[in-house]
Simulated assay, not measured.
Amino acid sequence: MATTSNPLDDPAADPFEVARRAADDIARLTGVGHHDIALTLGSGWGKAAELIGETTATLPADEVTGFSKPALEGHVGTLRSVRTPNGKNVLVIGARTHYYENHGVRRVVHSVRTAAATGATTMVLTNGAGGIKPHWKPGQPVLISDHINLTSDSPLEGATFIDLTDLYSTRLRNLAHTIDPSLEEGVYCQFRGPQYETPAEVRMAKAIGGHIVGMSTALEAIAARQAGMEILGFSLITNLAAGIQTTPLSHAEVIEAGREAGPVISALLARVIGAL
């Protein structure tokens, strides 16, 4: 069980052992000993869990070792086990720890490492983000083709060298395209946050090859690759980025865009999960 003192805050702790303990908690509390797929639900994507299949168990994330309640409105703070019609078990993570919360990278990627410890070999990461391409509209889902990590941090510790070629699986992106051929792709830039990017920072992101700006996902994707998982990433464009959009940015705008787009993007995500 999780306690007020998070074991990941101990520098001497083995984060993979903590993840194994968390996986044991999930198996005990859900009655599901193995998961095949893991899905992290970012802003706007929460309704997808209802459409994937039959929910067999739901539990507060803070009952699981290493997890804590999410700090951000729009994240539900639960872990859910869902059985798809084709018999696969999906671990739905509604408890993301963001890098800007200053809990350390171990806490940020704990959900991914836990998912791998439950047996999941596919990691689907979703987020709400700002779009740089001016023709993108709020409420539009975009596949992540690659990322640029602007946090100056990494979940890898010591001399751990992990290849990130094809980090966001070409195979899974092609599968998503068969379900919705209109899906566009873009390179995601993870900024530290929690402040939104300045127009100059958005111009920088564009200049170095970015199309999407946000505050999550990249560190999680690196940890998922280290764990040997195949990764699919989706961004919901909740707004155009600063300098592209002329009005001020707000979290309320992000939540509203997610609420309006929720039924469409959730149905899309459920169809993709069903095809995995």
Score class of each variant (00 low, 15 high):
1 M>Y: 01
3 T>S: 15
4 T>F: 13
6 N>R: 02
10 D>F: 14
11 P>V: 02
11 P>Y: 00
17 E>F: 15
18 V>F: 02
20 R>S: 13
20 R>I: 13
20 R>F: 06
25 D>N: 13
27 A>N: 09
29 L>C: 04
30 T>F: 03
31 G>A: 03
37 I>D: 06
39 L>V: 10
40 T>K: 02
42 G>M: 10
47 K>Q: 13
48 A>M: 06
49 A>G: 06
51 L>R: 11
51 L>E: 05
55 T>V: 11
55 T>M: 11
56 T>H: 11
60 P>F: 01
61 A>N: 09
61 A>V: 10
62 D>I: 10
63 E>L: 00
64 V>C: 07
67 F>G: 06
67 F>E: 09
69 K>E: 08
69 K>D: 07
70 P>M: 00
76 V>F: 11
77 G>M: 05
79 L>C: 04
81 S>Q: 05
91 L>E: 08
92 V>W: 00
92 V>G: 09
93 I>L: 11
93 I>S: 07
96 R>L: 15
97 T>A: 12
103 H>M: 04
104 G>E: 08
104 G>H: 01
105 V>L: 03
117 A>N: 12
120 A>W: 01
121 T>M: 14
125 L>D: 02
134 P>Q: 12
137 K>S: 13
142 V>F: 01
144 I>D: 00
145 S>P: 13
146 D>S: 06
148 I>L: 15
148 I>D: 11
150 L>A: 14
155 P>I: 11
158 G>I: 10
159 A>E: 14
162 I>A: 09
163 D>P: 09
164 L>G: 05
170 T>D: 01
171 R>H: 15
172 L>T: 11
174 N>T: 11
176 A>S: 15
177 H>N: 09
180 D>S: 08
186 G>P: 00
186 G>H: 00
188 Y>P: 09
188 Y>H: 04
190 Q>G: 04
191 F>W: 02
193 G>S: 04
196 Y>T: 14
196 Y>P: 14
205 A>G: 08
205 A>V: 15
207 A>F: 02
209 G>N: 02
210 G>I: 14
210 G>N: 02
212 I>H: 00
212 I>L: 02
216 S>M: 04
218 A>E: 12
221 A>C: 04
221 A>K: 00
222 I>Q: 10
222 I>T: 14
222 I>E: 04
223 A>K: 10
227 A>S: 08
227 A>N: 01
228 G>Y: 00
228 G>Q: 05
229 M>D: 09
230 E>I: 08
231 I>W: 05
231 I>E: 02
232 L>R: 03
233 G>A: 09
235 S>Y: 01
236 L>F: 05
237 I>S: 05
238 T>F: 01
239 N>K: 03
239 N>P: 13
240 L>H: 10
241 A>Q: 03
246 T>V: 11
252 A>R: 09
259 R>D: 12
264 V>Y: 07
265 I>W: 03
266 S>C: 05
269 L>A: 09
271 R>W: 01
272 V>W: 02
274 G>P: 15
